[in-house]
Amino acid sequence: MGETTQMAASEDDILSRAEAWTREGRKVAVATVIETWGSAPRPVGSHLVIDDEGNFLGSVSGGCVEGAVVTDALDVIATGKPRTLSFGVADETAWNAGLSCGGQIRIYVEPVT
């Protein structure tokens, strides 16, 4: 495996990194797309792996809601309790994260323990 593979980060690589990061002593959370409705940027089963310093790998929305997921993941790492997040259309009048493509996604965020 070369640098290219690490940069590319297929779903397999992402879960392998989650394991490697945990073994290095980092605290890690795994976010997974569990349901999508309508036009969604990433398919069910896509992962985002987050460590306790906010480093992340992979994607659950191609960039639209990763910021919000990372924030929640840090909370999940701190509390040790999994949670489910839902995102819909971005509300331009509020500072909420959302999907500009009009779809809806549900994301399960869990700590690696």
């Binding site: 397999d12 879960l15 392998s16 945990t22 569990i34």
Partner: peptide, 29 residues
């Protein structure tokens, strides 16, 4: 996710075997 479960899942993936991770969403089991 327990590290042991994650490691077992990665081992199945690396060996190119089919496996399913079942998560009960309400309890996280």
């Amino acid at each position: 996710m327990k590290l042991s479960v994650l490691a077992a899942l990665n081992a199945e993936r690396a060996a190119r075997r089919t496996a399913v991770l079942v998560t009960e969403l309400a309890s996280g089991r």
